[in-house]
Design a protein around this nucleic acid. Structure first.
Lengths: 233, 233
DNA sequence: CCAAAAGTGTTCTTTATACACCCATGT
DNA sequence: ACATGGGTGTATAAAGAACACTTTTGG
């Protein structure tokens, strides 16, 4: 009786799913969280977490829910990426997917691995396995968006801890953009934006001069307008 | 028999629609094309052209098809904007819409008014009527996207004729961005990008010095990387 | 000859880039 | 005392912004 087809319409309708590319950052590497699929199609393949959107929730609510169910993650930065609607993108039939991307703070990064419910695993974006469905295409769109977005919106903070050093922030930018940045110029620029708060706290137990911690000043950012970290090329 | 509900599924599915914000440019004004709705809900209200996506077409194909059916427009620049999925955005039930925006060349602008099939009408974006559904919200997203996009991608050309003068191009930018630009600086910048071809042709029958026509060099643009017309603020 | 828009360079200011040494801390 | 990464300033180059007059054309 679980297979009854009791929802009927005058015209055929596609199924609506949502997927989420979850970016994390660890040890100087940009990573994404993948789920090993338990069922056909693409059983045992890796895929971005996602699933069917309920009839009483928005696609974003669905993405947030699936994210929690499959990875245990909550309260992450999430934003709509693109809607994929190729007719043959899913062998089960017509399925369209509203895809989101999320950024996970380092403090929450570990939590995922500890979640026993899901077969979730972080992969460096340079060593991705073969992906299910059209998820390789989706990934390409996501990484491109992240690279371009980070240049003019301070979303980088979402991948670090609440408190971070300027060097950590710089390394994050270098990793995502794949380029080296000059330390003095980077600091000059990011500090001149006036969106960082220098905390009264330094690193401890480091075998070198301890760095000051900073945090992102969300209020100040929201009240200002956009900024640009790098001039677009 | 037209009302038979013969497409049945195990779980409820939202209906999938697509809408299209069509931007045009005329006499120094940025306009959008609206359709007067012939049926409930929102009968006699104005709305962006759109409709249900067929089961064998992508949302973009649906948008292109609806655009043609409702306005006669073909071969326009079109790009996905955002997917709207609020649970109560359509009184008929759960309907999600993958929304696109399109840019129409001036040479095709008139064609629309001549199409007798549709109750289509251009409205200045400063004098929009009340819109159906959540189309006011959709418009806000679209205009914001257009303003930000035009700063770093040469989509402005899609709103002019094949041949245009630099003054026309400048006025277009001024209209969309709502700011005045310096003539000499604008020309210096746009010409230095090397994406315009100066034609061997001038204006005729103008009561002032005739301006040279230019056209957009798509090949050169595609082979280069992004450019920036204005530094983001 | 008048009105209207086209076309054209230079100066100044702001922003970006390149670059090297001393400092604090743990081992 | 040494190895490690933290923190800082200045000079040069490039880009952006401000600004005014001459030219061409039709009426």
């Amino acid at each position: 009786m679980g297979k009854e087809k009791k929802y009927c319409y005058e015209y055929p309708r596609p199924a609506l799913t949502t997927d989420c590319i979850i970016f994390g950052y660890d040890f100087g590497e940009l990573k994404v969280l993948l789920i090993e699929r338990a069922h056909e199609p693409f059983r045992a393949s890796w895929a971005f977490p996602g699933g069917f959107v309920n009839i009483d929730e928005t696609s974003e609510e669905g993405a947030v829910r699936e994210l929690y169910e499959e990875t245990g993650l909550q309260n992450v930065f999430i934003e709509q990426l693109y809607t994929f609607s190729d007719v043959d993108r899913d062998p089960r039939g017509r399925v369209i997917s509203v895809v989101y991307y999320a950024l996970v703070k380092q403090s929450e990064y570990k939590a995922v691995a500890g979640d026993d419910a899901a077969k979730a695993k972080w992969f460096s974006i340079n060593k991705l396995p073969k992906l299910a469905f059209d998820h390789e295409m989706i990934f390409d769109v996501a990484i491109k968006r992240l690279k371009s977005k980070i240049k003019y919106q301070p979303i980088g903070f979402e991948l670090l801890n609440e408190k971070f050093t300027l060097t950590e922030l710089q390394q994050l930018y270098e990793t995502i953009l794949g380029i080296d940045l000059d330390k003095r110029n980077f600091r000059k620029k990011i500090l001149s934006m006036d969106i960082l708060i220098k905390l009264d706290e330094k690193q401890t137990n480091v075998a070198h001069k301890a760095a000051w911690f900073y945090k992102f000043d969300k209020e100040k950012y929201d009240s200002s307008s956009l900024f640009t970290l790098l001039t677009p090329k």
